[in-house]
Design a protein around this nucleic acid. Structure first.
Lengths: 343, 343
DNA sequence: TATTTTCGTGCAAACGATTGCATTGATGCT
DNA sequence: AGCATCAATGCAATCGTTTGCACGAAAATA
């Protein structure tokens, strides 16, 4: 069926081992032989069998992707497309390809990861989320398998390498930005509470308020599942308060879309009656109306850097100390907060 | 290092072959032995090595994904997240996992596919686009490798199985819809011309005009690369015509966003001064302003069905006749065309 | 010229499973 | 009791590479 290394060897009048060395471009083979073998290779249309190769040298040239358990819903957020784009770019540059399993339940995802690791299907793993008490991260750490997480891991974060945005800082900055625009009643709408992002961003938000001498009101802090629809409920809850806020920090552009759409239905104008600022600066931020003021966090870069770290980790055999990479962010001012004048 | 089948065999006092048969749940092994072996397996924490397995039984339980060459830009369109979501769901249900290579040039993608197929890395392939004269499809067909394309393939489409929307019909329907709303000057803004989608949709558009007795004006048909930014140029060109259109059919929601945003800048109101209808019904359609009237094409379903066909094809050894699956679509009326009254 | 290095290559044993065929002991049949 | 049948398991070859080691010839050294 398949053209094997033996066929090539026969054609070129050498031993299979020689062919193998030619593939690896070993310096121990003479130029002349190399050429002869190479010619035989493309005459026969030879392609190495990946599995035989992986089996023999215990390497796969593939990296595994771990998505949040509800892969189903989650993949809808362009965040993931974008981070995968970053991962895939770097991976491809280094001759790695991508491998992904999905699962509906958290348990399924975990099983997927285990069999991917134990089954030696990949050389390393990048984890695309980070939540409290996550079995996956724990497992990877215990098995001393190369991995990096996008986002800040909880447990023992000093020993795991991760790449992240400084979400705490970003949360603080945007809150201060709103305050500078004159807002005193600033609310926060966040995604799932067990996600690191949410916690960091809300932490920054609180700090900013404190620093500005504004009391923190728990009723101003609402959280909802990470999608557009969640925004609706959040808004309704906020607007039914005795003193509704005049500005809101939303933890994700997608959710901000939901928030704005609901505000619109309720006849509340953005930015006149409510300022909205959010995070991620997805392409939709530019085309919503009004266009969203949002924090550009360079999602592509997160994926790219993560893969970079992972590949480093795969290549060094020493289990590395946890390394952390912070990808810089900046606020992109559009129209959802008014304050166009602000730099 | 790794726990192998031999370790399990030793532990359970049987031969490796018996363990293998237990894994495959062969009926030739007695219940008693099965249990003993299974116990040994999880005592030792055994996981089969995927590559050894693939090598021996010439199967991988993995499906390859082929993205358009400019994977880089393309992945930004939520279309791909969504179709992958469908693919991944079905794949996972049947114990397959996903494998993707990417490449920046068309040539790189092609090489990726070839080595994925010849290297026996996957059992089948789903191609996520279809353009004229595509080497990839040609190659897959020549190698008699199981594959299915999402979208309508050009060459010899009778022999390749594909799943698609009836884009021709959809194009015709939306055009008629606009006509029913009273529009006579209807333009078409499409994506890359060598994509099957574009051609089909514009075909339907033309047919509808003919059927309604409206002459086709070539200047009303513009095409631009498949993203938001392309929309801007298209609009400018259309609005500088002597008789600008009063309605426009846009080939993709993303592009429609660009179109609407440009119209907005130019002070042209939607839907009052320009009706806009588009395709795909991405989540953003719901949250744009005004919310987009768009054709729901069930992208998830496209991916899901495609994978279904692929798996069928993998399991039958007979090379199947090209099978075609058309996933139904329907118009979701929102506000970008006005005509709320229309059913 | 004899002896050590170096260079280029081949041999054969892994890597960790699967699977056709042989083996064995028990059972059924006459 | 003798023989065929059958169920349960083991043996060993195979899948297509890689790689440590051995080997002969050529080059370098003494």
């Amino acid at each position: 069926m398949q053209v094997t290394i033996k066929d090539v060897a026969r054609e070129a009048n050498v031993a299979p081992s020689t062919v193998s060395r030619v593939i690896a471009n070993s310096s121990r083979i003479s130029q002349k032989t190399k050429e002869r073998v190479r010619q035989a290779m493309d005459e026969l249309g030879y392609y190495p069998n990946v599995h035989a190769r992986s089996l023999a040298n215990r390497t796969t040239q593939a990296i595994g992707l771990v998505m949040p358990s509800a892969a189903t819903k989650t993949l809808q957020n362009p965040f993931f497309s974008e981070v995968i784009r970053g991962i895939s770019t770097k991976a491809h540059q280094n001759g790695y390809s991508l491998y992904m399993t999905t699962g509906v339940s958290e348990e399924e995802v975990y099983e997927g990861v285990v069999s991917m690791v134990q089954g030696r299907r990949v050389d390393g793993v990048v984890v695309l989320y980070s939540r409290t008490d996550d079995k996956v991260v724990q497992f990877l750490q215990d098995s001393k398998f190369p991995f990096v997480v996008v986002g800040k891991p909880f447990s023992d974060s000093s020993h795991v390498t991760y790449v992240d945005t400084d979400n705490y800082l970003a949360g603080r900055e945007v809150t201060k930005y709103l305050h500078q625009l004159g807002h005193e009643c600033i609310a926060f709408v966040g995604g799932a509470q067990d996600l690191a992002v949410t916690q960091e961003r809300v932490g920054g938000y609180k700090t900013a308020l404190m620093e500005e001498g504004i009391p923190i009101q728990e009723s101003y802090i609402v959280s909802a599942p990470f999608m557009t629809t969640g925004g609706a409920e959040a808004v309704k809850r906020l607007m039914s308060l005795e003193h509704p806020p005049t500005a809101v920090v939303v933890s994700d552009d997608m959710m901000a879309l939901g928030v704005m759409s609901t505000l619109n239905e309720m006849g509340i104008g953005v930015p006149d009656q409510m300022a909205v600022v959010s995070f991620n600066n997805l392409f939709i931020a530019e085309f919503s109306s009004p266009p969203l003021t949002s924090v550009e966090i360079n999602i592509f870069g997160l994926g790219f850097e993560a893969t970079n770290c992972l590949i480093e980790q795969i290549n060094e055999d020493a289990t590395p100390y946890g390394k952390r990479v912070i990808v810089p962010h900046y606020l992109v001012v559009r129209q959802s907060c008014g304050g166009k004048s602000e730099a």
